[in-house]
Each structure stands twice: as C-alpha cells, then as structure tokens.
Simulated scan of single mutants.
Amino acid sequence: MTYEVDSDESQALDEHSETSTRPHNPAIILNQPPNQPGAQHLTRQYWDIRRQISTLAVRGEALEQRLRTLHIRDPDIYLSSPALSRRLSRAKQELMEERERSRTVERILQDIRQECRTPAVIPMLLSALEDS
C-alpha cells in the first residue's frame, strides 16, 4: 500500500533516501500533517482508499469483460472474491485432512518400527494359533 506524501515531506524523504534510511516520523508514514487531528485524517484516508478499491474493482470488471471478448480460456481470471474464498477454504480443509492422514501413517509406522525392535504382537498371535 502506498501513501501520497506532501511536497515538504517528499523533500524530506528525498534527503533521507540518499542514505537509504527512512524517517521514523509517524506523520510522514501515515501522511498525517502534525497539526491535524488523527481520527479525522484517518477517516478521510479510509474513505479515499475505499474509493480507490471501488474504482479498481470497476476497472477489473472492465478488463475481465475485455478478456472474455478475446475468448481467454483461463478460468481463474473470472473467479469472484466469494469463489476465491470458497476455493481457499476448500484448500485449507484438504490440507488439514492430508496432515491428519500423514499423522495416522506416522503412528502406524512407529508401531511397525516398535514391533520390529521388540516383537510382541507376532509372538502373541503365534501362541494364540498354537493354543487353538
């Protein structure tokens, strides 16, 4: 995310960029003049960003429409935010299931290794077969 900087602040940033250090003044980082109340400025900045998001969303839809007219076959281009969220949720669920399967296989492998080191089950099975 980028923030616009006033000309005085820009000059201050240019002076500091030569030494490749950024000023640690919060007023410069948040584009907040020192004499302006914080909440009022942040509210205005919030609504500016919301307008930018809306503008970019409209531009994205226009580009998507142009891609459709060019018959672009990449289905991921046309996914909406809810569709992307569903796909991400599904991928997270699959990851959790895969991790659980991996843990199960690890436990089985540990049991096999233990049985190979100190046999207990096989001799018990053999003795049970002999007794019957």
Rank of each mutant, 00 (worst) to 15 (best):
T2H: 12
E4A: 05
D6H: 14
D6C: 10
D6G: 11
S7P: 11
E9Q: 14
E9L: 05
E9M: 09
Q11H: 15
S17L: 04
T19Q: 13
T21V: 00
P23F: 00
P26E: 00
A27Q: 12
A27G: 15
Q32R: 13
P33I: 01
P34I: 04
P34L: 02
P34S: 09
G38Q: 08
A39Y: 07
A39D: 13
Q40M: 05
Q40H: 13
H41L: 01
T43S: 12
T43M: 01
R44H: 12
Q45I: 06
Y46R: 11
W47E: 03
D48M: 05
D48E: 05
I49Q: 09
I49V: 08
R51K: 10
R51M: 08
R51Q: 09
S54Q: 12
S54Y: 06
T55Y: 12
L56S: 14
L56A: 15
A57F: 12
A57L: 14
R59Q: 07
A62S: 07
Q65E: 11
L67M: 07
R68Y: 15
L70W: 01
L70F: 07
R73F: 00
R73Q: 14
D74Y: 02
P75S: 07
P75F: 02
D76G: 03
I77D: 02
Y78N: 10
S81N: 03
A83N: 08
L84A: 05
L84D: 08
L84W: 10
S85F: 00
S85A: 04
R87H: 15
R87N: 05
L88W: 05
R90K: 15
E98Y: 08
E100W: 12
R101I: 09
S102W: 02
S102T: 06
R103V: 07
R107F: 15
R107E: 14
L109E: 15
L109G: 01
Q110M: 03
I112R: 04
Q114D: 06
T118V: 01
P119M: 01
P119R: 01
A120F: 03
P123K: 01
M124C: 07
L125H: 06
L126N: 05
S127V: 13
A128N: 10
L129K: 13
